[in-house]
Computed example of a mutant assay.
Amino acid sequence: MNQLRRDVFQAIADPTRRDIIDLLAGRSLNLNAIAENFNISRPAVSKHIRILVECGLVVIAEQGRERFCRADVRKLQEVNAWTERYRALWNEKLDALGDFLDQQ
């Protein structure tokens, strides 16, 4: 079966995955500790973690028999770079609107 290529935009499109990233920002947790924070099944949490790993937003480190997850938010720079282009466009448009309103 052909695996779909996942990207950071797909990862952050889901609110549960955004919450997982927030939860793991600055700390490592095992899968059970992550799952305790959500009202969804542990397999559903594992699926979200797998997508985040595929997108490079979560890294899993094995310590003995435990698997600890941590966020690697460097990939979010892609999102920032993409939105920055539109921020400049909107600032330009809002400045033009302000100029227009000042002339009225």
Results as ranks from 00 to 15, higher is better:
39 N>W: 03
7 D>G: 14
16 T>V: 15
3 Q>I: 08
47 K>C: 06
73 V>N: 13
33 A>L: 13
53 V>Q: 11
3 Q>F: 13
51 I>P: 00
35 A>K: 14
22 D>G: 09
11 A>Q: 07
78 E>M: 09
48 H>L: 05
13 A>C: 00
55 C>T: 13
43 P>W: 12
21 I>L: 15
45 V>W: 01
101 L>P: 03
4 L>A: 15
17 R>S: 08
63 Q>V: 05
76 L>C: 11
102 D>L: 05
14 D>W: 06
104 Q>C: 13
37 N>Y: 10
42 R>T: 07
79 V>E: 00
13 A>K: 02
82 W>Y: 09
5 R>P: 04
22 D>R: 14
60 I>L: 07
81 A>H: 11
90 W>D: 04
71 A>E: 06
67 R>Y: 09
7 D>N: 15
52 L>M: 05
21 I>A: 04
51 I>V: 04
63 Q>M: 00
47 K>E: 10
50 R>D: 14
6 R>T: 12
101 L>N: 05
98 G>Q: 04
48 H>D: 00
18 R>M: 07
53 V>M: 07
67 R>K: 14
8 V>I: 13
31 L>H: 03
29 L>D: 04
1 M>W: 14
2 N>Q: 15
80 N>W: 13
33 A>G: 09
59 V>G: 01
12 I>A: 13
11 A>M: 08
85 R>K: 07
90 W>K: 07
99 D>G: 05
85 R>E: 12
56 G>D: 06
21 I>E: 03
101 L>E: 00
54 E>A: 12
26 G>F: 09
3 Q>W: 10
66 E>A: 09
98 G>V: 01
15 P>K: 07
102 D>V: 00
70 R>C: 03
29 L>A: 02
3 Q>P: 14
4 L>I: 09
76 L>G: 11
2 N>S: 11
34 I>S: 00
76 L>E: 12
76 L>F: 08
6 R>E: 10
32 N>W: 06
32 N>F: 10
53 V>C: 06
104 Q>N: 13
33 A>I: 06
68 F>L: 13
101 L>A: 04
55 C>G: 07
24 L>A: 00
6 R>V: 15
19 D>Y: 12
88 A>M: 03
64 G>P: 08
28 S>R: 12
101 L>K: 06
65 R>G: 14
28 S>P: 02
1 M>S: 14
57 L>Q: 01
78 E>F: 13
42 R>C: 01
36 E>G: 05
97 L>G: 07
51 I>A: 02
56 G>Q: 05
88 A>L: 08
36 E>D: 12
61 A>T: 13
41 S>D: 04
65 R>I: 12
58 V>P: 00
68 F>P: 03
49 I>G: 00
43 P>G: 11
16 T>C: 11
63 Q>D: 06
93 K>M: 09
13 A>V: 00
101 L>T: 03
65 R>D: 15
15 P>I: 12
40 I>D: 00
5 R>Y: 07
89 L>C: 08
1 M>T: 11
55 C>H: 01
75 K>R: 10
22 D>K: 15
64 G>Q: 09
25 A>F: 07
43 P>R: 09
21 I>F: 07
12 I>T: 03
9 F>M: 10
13 A>M: 02
28 S>K: 05
56 G>M: 04
12 I>G: 02
77 Q>V: 10
63 Q>K: 11
45 V>A: 01
100 F>C: 06
10 Q>R: 09
